[in-house]
Every structure is written in C-alpha cells, then in structure tokens.
Design a protein around this nucleic acid. Sequence first.
DNA 1: CACTTAATTCAACGCTTGTTGAATTAGTTG
DNA 2: CAACTAATTCAACAAGCGTTGAATTAAGTG
Lengths: 201, 201
Amino acid sequence: MNRGRRPGQVSSRDAVLRAAREQFSRKGYDAATVRAIAAEAGVDPSMINHHFGTKEQLFMAALESPVDPKDHISAVLGGPREGAGERLVTRILAVWDSPAGAAGVAVLRTAMQHEWSAALVREFILNRAIKPLLAGLGVPAEEASWRGNLVASQLSGLILTRYLIKLEPIASAPHAVVVQALGPTIQRYLTGAVGADHLGG
Amino acid sequence: MNRGRRPGQVSSRDAVLRAAREQFSRKGYDAATVRAIAAEAGVDPSMINHHFGTKEQLFMAALESPVDPKDHISAVLGGPREGAGERLVTRILAVWDSPAGAAGVAVLRTAMQHEWSAALVREFILNRAIKPLLAGLGVPAEEASWRGNLVASQLSGLILTRYLIKLEPIASAPHAVVVQALGPTIQRYLTGAVGADHLGG
DNA sequence: CACTTAATTCAACGCTTGTTGAATTAGTTG
DNA sequence: CAACTAATTCAACAAGCGTTGAATTAAGTG
C-alpha cells in the first residue's frame, strides 16, 4: 500500500476533505462548488472526482464524523434525573463548538434547500438522538414523540441563532450562561408538564 | 394608465410575483431559478427582467409583505402580563400559517446561505420585533438583549422544525397544543429568571 | 532497469444559470 | 387611421457548474 506517494507526505485527499468540510459548513451543499473546494485545497478539481467520485459522495465523506450520539446520551443519562436538561444543553454546546460541529452545520444548512438532507436531519434527531435519550429517562413511548419534538425545537433554535444566524449575544455567550437559561426549559420538555392531554396523539 | 393591457385581464406581473413567492419560500434564493419561476407563472423568463429588473430585485419585490409587526406587538401587550408568552406564541403561529408566512420562510431559507439575508433576519428579529415588545413589557434595556435572544432561540426553533424541516408531530400540531407547551417557556424568557447574574453583559 | 500503478495535470464537454437586445404583437391615444 | 408605448416572444450570450478522458509525472516492485 501507500503506492505512488512519498512517505511522510500527507495525501491531498485529506486536504480536500478539510476544505470540503469548511466550504460545505459555511455555504451549504449547492453554494459550495467543487472548484472552490479544490482551490482551497490547492488541488485540481478533477482530483476530487478521482478520489471521491462525485460531489455528493464527497459530501457524504465530509460528513463522516467521529461523533457517536450514544456516548453523549449515556453521559446525559448518568446523574440525577432532574439535572438531565442542563447536562443535555452542556453536551450540545460542547459538540457544536468543536470541529465536529462543522459537519452538523453543513447538513443543517443543506437541509434548508434539499429534502434529502432534511430527511437526514429528521432521522438523526428523532431516531438516533432523542428517542434513545427519552427511553433511557424512562419516558413512556406515547409521550416520547411529542416531548422529543419540543426538545428538538428549543435545541435547533439554539443552534440556528448561535451558529447559523449568529445572533448576538447568544452566539458568544459562555456555555454556563446558556445552560442556566435553557436547562430548565429542556428539563420541563423532558420530564415536566407539557400538555398531557395531547400526549399520545 | 393600464396601457397595452386588455381590461379585466390580470397582468402577468402578479402571476410572476405569486410564482416567485412560492419558489423562493420552498427552495430559497439560489435554488429558485428565474426560469422555473417564469415557467410556473406561464411566462417567458425575460418578462421577469422586463418587469422587475434583476433576480435580486424580484426577490425583494416578492418579500413585500402586508405584515406589520407593530399590530401584533400591541396585541401581545394588550392583556395580563403573565399571559404574554402564550399570546406571543399564538400570534407567531397565526402569522406563519398564513400566506404571509411564505415570505418569512423564503428569507429564513436564504439566510442559511447568504450573509445579507442573515443580516436581514437579525435586524428584523432584534430591532423590529423583540426590542419593542420587551420595551412594552417594561423590561429594563440591559436585560432586553439577552431575554430577546432567548425568545428568538425558542421561536426560531419552532419555525425551523414546524415549517422548514417539517418534523412530526410538531409540524401538524394544533395551535392550542403548541401554545400550551411553548407558552410557559416564552413567558419565563420574557419576565422570569433566566440567569440574572449575566444580564447586562 | 523495466513494469505497474496511483497521483496529478490539462483541456474540454454538455448543461444550466441570469441577463440582454432585437423583433413582433397588442392596445390606447391624438 | 396613424402614432406611440407597453407587453411579449425569441434567440443568443457569457459565465459558471460538475464531470470526463487522455496524457504526464512520480513512486514503489520484481
């Protein structure tokens, strides 16, 4: 292996991936052009097709993220039940402020324009993140759907205003301040009273 | 006036505007092509330039909305202070479920990709909507900024999940159910305890 | 040194985009 | 009717897009 490459030299593949993540997260799928990604990576546009096939495959490759929701979910579940809201907000901020958050921003930006990306977001939020979390909290299945949507609405709004629209001062607020403000909201959505007569619909 | 047009026949200008609103709100500024708008309006693409100049000017014309935030703000302010949260959510749902909401969806979709649209959203949310509302509630100026951001985070998240991502069941939930769930959250952000040590920063 | 294979370069393709300008049609005005 | 003006049609433009394939370079292998 490692054929045709000087040892100790990083392949241009990584440079392309880095540039792709940067461009996709800043502009979304459509506005981020293959040519611009190639330029930022200091590479010929055709290299992208050579390494990744099509633009869509590059997008998927750029989304490959080391973030496993399971780790964070178990972390949120570990601790007193009435502190789950604050712990969830804390985790969300940590992930989205890290480099791994760029992938999320890219998908979310693209979800505004392409149904297939919106479907990706829905699937992830519901089945991968919120459903197992609520199950771990012992929330009845017939309540989980509605409570999960409420949690998603507040957290996606946080992400939208803080990372996409960059509304100040929430975009620059320290984690602790955001946690203090949103924690009780999330806690109520998870385990409090949220219109019990509708649950199960 | 009315030169060169058969009386009783609506000009193609209105048809273009209608199609533009539809396309812009469904796809955002970039993905909505001039040609697609023209096709939906049953009109030659060059008619758009003839009537509106450029695509950007058409976008601006399509955003001309009969919605005046002032009316809704005074409606929210009219009534007991502790019911302001529920009244605000009620108003938001009414506006965004109406045809006028399409313009908002268009701007918000575009704000994900273009800084100039994001700036438009920031300006509107902060100065036109939330700032006067909080002033009317008698909230001190040094708290208004932070409280306003919190309100924006929850309401923009509602709009995102309900109208853009179309997360179920929140996308189809009756107004009353959403009001019951989000009302207390907004109320706390407006007048409750939200991290008083940070306010004024 | 050949041989092989991957990496890279370069030019070009077909397509869609927003926009333009000339030619034509239609309806009102003097 | 003649004159004028707005509305409409049509073809084409330049620019940018993703993608392709052939030619070239470079590096490890027998």
